[in-house]
Design a protein around this nucleic acid. Structure first.
Length: 271
DNA sequence: AGAAAATCCTGGTGGC
DNA sequence: TGCCACCAGGATTTTC
C-alpha cells in the first residue's frame, strides 16, 4: 500500500520524463473510486506540464486542467515508451508522445480525477482538508503542537487522520511513534511540547529515509515491475507482533485502534 | 458544531 | 479444495 514515500518515489520516477509530452490517446478501464469527471477523449491534445504531489495525491498539471491521481492501497503507476499489453487491472492509461502512463490497481481504491483548476470545489473537496506536508518547511513545529493540542483522540489515530500532518499511513505511524518513544494510545493533547518535537523529527526521519530507500530502485522503475521499491524500509515494529524489539528485546505488542492494527514496544514506548 | 467512531469499497491471503 | 474472516486508505456517514 503506497504511503507518502512510495507516492513521492513514483513521482520522482517519471515527472521529468513525462514533462512536455503531448497526449495522443487516453483510456479508462473499470471504474475507480470516483469517476474521472470529464470525457476521457477530452484529454487528447493536451500537454503535460509537470507532476507535483500533495499528500498522497499526484497532481499532473496539463496545458489545460489537472489530473489528480491517488494510488489507494494497491495502485501503481508505470511510465515507459513501450509497455506490455494492458491487463485486467489496468484502469487508466495516457498514451503520450514520450511514453505511456498506466495505472494498475487491482482493488480499485485508487482514483484519477480531472479538475479544471486546483481551486475547483471538486479539487478542494479532496485536497482542502489535508494537513501539513511532513517533508517540507511547511511542517511547522508550533502548528504541529497546536494541531495536536486540540485533539483528545489517540496520537496514532490523529496522525492517521491526515488533517494535522499528511502522509503518515498505518505503517509509518507505528514506526514514527516508536522512533519518538511515544505510546500510540496516548491522547494527542497530552503530549508535552518536547515530545511533540521529537515526534516531528521522527516523522520526518522515517519518511525521508523511506523516500531515499525507494530512490535506490528508481532506475528500474520503468523496466522492472511497479512494486519494486515498496516496503524497502526495515520496520522496527510494524508487522513484528510477538517478536523481540530490535532496540531492547522486549516483546512487540499489537493492538487495534479504530479497526487498524498498531504495533509498539511496551518498554521503549512507555507513555 | 465539531470531533470521533463506524462504514464501505475490492481482492489477496491465510487458516481451517 | 473451498469457504470465510480479515486486512488495508480514506471519503463519507453516523454517533456522540
Amino acid at each position: 500500500m503506497p504511503e507518502l514515500p512510495e507516492v513521492e518515489v513514483t513521482r520522482l520516477s517519471f515527472a521529468k520524463d513525462i514533462q512536455g509530452a503531448g497526449v495522443l490517446a487516453a483510456r479508462l478501464g473499470k471504474p475507480l473510486r470516483w469517476p474521472l469527471g470529464c470525457d476521457v477523449a477530452q484529454l487528447v491534445g493536451r500537454q503535460v506540464r509537470s507532476v507535483q504531489r500533495r499528500g498522497k495525491y499526484l497532481l499532473i498539471e496539463m496545458s489545460q486542467g489537472w489530473l489528480l491521481v491517488h494510488l489507494g492501497m494497491s495502485g501503481s503507476l508505470r511510465f515507459a515508451q513501450e509497455l506490455p499489453p494492458s491487463g485486467v487491472y489496468d484502469h487508466f492509461e495516457l498514451v503520450t508522445t514520450l511514453g505511456t502512463l498506466r495505472l494498475n490497481d487491482p482493488r480499485r481504491f485508487g482514483a484519477v480525477v480531472y479538475v479544471d483548476n486546483l481551486t475547483d470545489p471538486q479539487a478542494h473537496k479532496l485536497l482542502g482538508r489535508l494537513g501539513m506536508e511532513p517533508l517540507s518547511d511547511a511542517f511547522d513545529l508550533r502548528q504541529f503542537q497546536a494541531g495536536l493540542g486540540q485533539r483528545k483522540a489517540a496520537i496514532k489515530q490523529v496522525l492517521l487522520a491526515g488533517d494535522v500532518v499528511v502522509g503518515v499511513g498505518n505503517i509509518y505511524a507505528s514506526e514514527a511513534l516508536f522512533l519518538a518513544g511515544i505510546r500510540p494510545t496516548i491522547s494527542a493533547a497530552d503530549l508535552s511540547k518536547p515530545r511533540v518535537a521529537r515526534l516531528q523529527v521522527a516523522i520526518r526521519d522515517v519518511l525521508a529515509r523511506a523516500v531515499e530507500k525507494g530512490g535506490s530502485t528508481l532506475r528500474d522503475f520503468s523496466s522492472a515491475d511497479g512494486q519494486t521499491g515498496y516496503f524497502q524500509l526495515e520496520a522496527m515494529v510494524y508487522g513484528r507482533a510477538e517478536l523481540p524489539c530490535k532496540a531492547c528485546g522486549s516483546t512487540i505488542k499489537m493492538i487495534r485502534q479504530g479497526q487498524r492494527s498498531t504495533f509498539y514496544c511496551p518498554s521503549c514506548q512507555k507513555r
